[in-house]
Simulated assay, not measured.
Amino acid sequence: MGTHTGSLDPPGLAATGKDVEFDVREIIEFRDGLASHFRVVMDMTEFARQIGAFPARGSRGERAMARMPRFQMKVARRR
């Protein structure tokens, strides 16, 4: 748990001062006994929900976003 006090990648997520909590996975790849790659994986959608940059789970906004790709495909097929 922490407070969103600084900008994050992707750019555009400015600090909000809101409390956030999310799971992080650290993946370390070793070669010849040494760490050769290090990755950090987190659920950016859940983070965005907590700072108000993404609609709440099950909300009308989330349902509309879920339907958007289907709508885009229908429009693309008509062209």
Rank of each mutant, 00 (worst) to 15 (best):
D9L: 08
S7F: 04
S7A: 11
F38N: 10
D32H: 04
P10L: 13
L34S: 05
A14C: 05
M42P: 00
F30V: 13
G33R: 07
T45N: 01
D23Y: 03
D32F: 03
F38P: 00
R31W: 03
F22H: 09
P10G: 06
V24C: 13
I28Y: 11
V24T: 14
L13D: 02
A15P: 01
H37E: 12
V40E: 02
E21H: 07
T16P: 07
A35T: 03
A35P: 12
M44F: 07
G17P: 10
E29A: 14
M42G: 05
V40P: 01
D23S: 10
R49N: 00
H37T: 03
L13E: 05
G33D: 08
A14F: 03
A48V: 00
S7Q: 09
K18L: 11
S36D: 11
T16I: 11
F38Q: 10
R25D: 11
A15S: 12
A48D: 00
F47P: 00
G17E: 02
L13P: 03
R39E: 07
A14S: 15
G6F: 04
M42H: 09
T45K: 03
V40C: 06
E26W: 12
G17I: 01
V41K: 05
D19R: 11
M42Y: 06
L34V: 09
